[in-house]
Design a binder for these strands. Structure first.
Length: 282
DNA sequence: CACCATGTTCCTTG
DNA sequence: CCAAGGAACATGGT
């Protein structure tokens, strides 16, 4: 479900419903979904803790937990297919529930079909992250400097987490299209003008997606097979990916800017979508 | 059966 | 040694 905007919207939603609630019990259904902690130690450590607040860093959710005796953070990552939501205690848990927490009247569910996601009380993953794209730490000057250090195609660079965090396969194509930069441009060949446009396009693309997602009502019961949130459409009758994305998933369709045909190519074993007429190399 | 899929890490290749 | 490319993780949809 997630790239940065989807995680941000989820964090905002959880922040509305979790603070103040106590974890009565943690059940780990899939041991590998708690890494690198031992699942039993993780469950034991969380029992009795209370949610204080939830934050986001890159695509990680950070749960601030407190008790009269201690306070610590737990990290969550949704991988490709993770979802988190509250469910009435009487509801049937999803088939691919990775772990669940018993709260008061409801259960907190971490469901993850492909099990690439995880939860952990080990925060080491946060150490190696680049700047947040929507914060002041994401400076144009630094962005340009880092681009100079690699000949890798810009699309592939955007997916690494050292240049800037939070951009995934969908928004990489979208941001490049907006800034009219060809996805195969070597990073060190990006001009000053292109870098400025791309820097702005990254912020605009992610920011607008968060705004859109923040306005959708959520399906907290987790009944929708698609998603309780807004990735790939959210609720029926709402805006779907077909309206949200300008190039992603639109191979063969007409570019809304120039009418040319959107093309798909493979970079680092993943699809990239772009308009060959709008996005020229150099 | 084929191919595709929102993320990240690790191993191999050149 | 380094950068870049690709496989792996696991499950499902079309």
């Amino acid at each position: 479900m997630p790239e940065l905007p989807e995680v941000q919207v989820l964090v905002q939603s959880l922040q509305q419903v979790l603070p103040g609630r106590t974890i009565k019990k943690v059940t780990v259904c899939r041991e590998k979904s708690v890494r690198p902690d031992s699942a039993t130690a993780f469950a034991k450590r969380l029992k009795g803790m209370r949610f204080h607040s939830i934050e986001r860093r890159a695509k990680y959710l950070l749960f601030n937990l407190r008790s009269p005796l201690e306070s610590f953070q737990v990290l969550g990552h949704l991988g490709m297919t993770g979802r988190m939501f509250l469910q009435p205690k009487t509801s049937e848990r999803p088939k691919h529930t990775a772990l669940w927490m018993e709260l008061d009247r409801e259960n907190f569910i971490f469901e993850d079909t492909r099990y690439f996601g995880r939860m952990s009380s080990n925060l080491d993953a946060l150490d190696r992250l680049g700047p947040e794209p929507l914060s002041d730490d994401f400076e144009l000057a630094g962005f340009r400097e880092k681009l100079k250090c690699s000949r890798q195609a810009i699309k592939v660079r955007l997916l690494a987490t050292d240049l800037v965090v939070g951009i995934g396969n969908i928004y990489a194509s979208e941001a490049l299209y907006r800034s009219r930069v060809h996805p195969q441009t070597p990073a060190n060949k990006i001009t000053a003008v292109q870098a400025r446009r791309l820097h702005q396009a990254i912020r605009d693309t992610l920011g607008e997606a968060i705004e859109l997602g923040s306005g959708l009502s959520l399906d907290w019961a987790g009944k929708e097979s698609r998603d309780g949130l807004f990735y790939f459409g959210g609720q029926k009758g709402q805006e779907t990916d077909q309206e949200r994305f300008r190039v992603y998933g639109r191979e063969g369709e007409a570019c809304v800017r120039c009418g040319g045909l959107i093309r798909r190519l493979i970079q680092a074993a993943r699809s990239t979508f772009y308009c060959p007429r709008c996005q020229k190399i150099r």
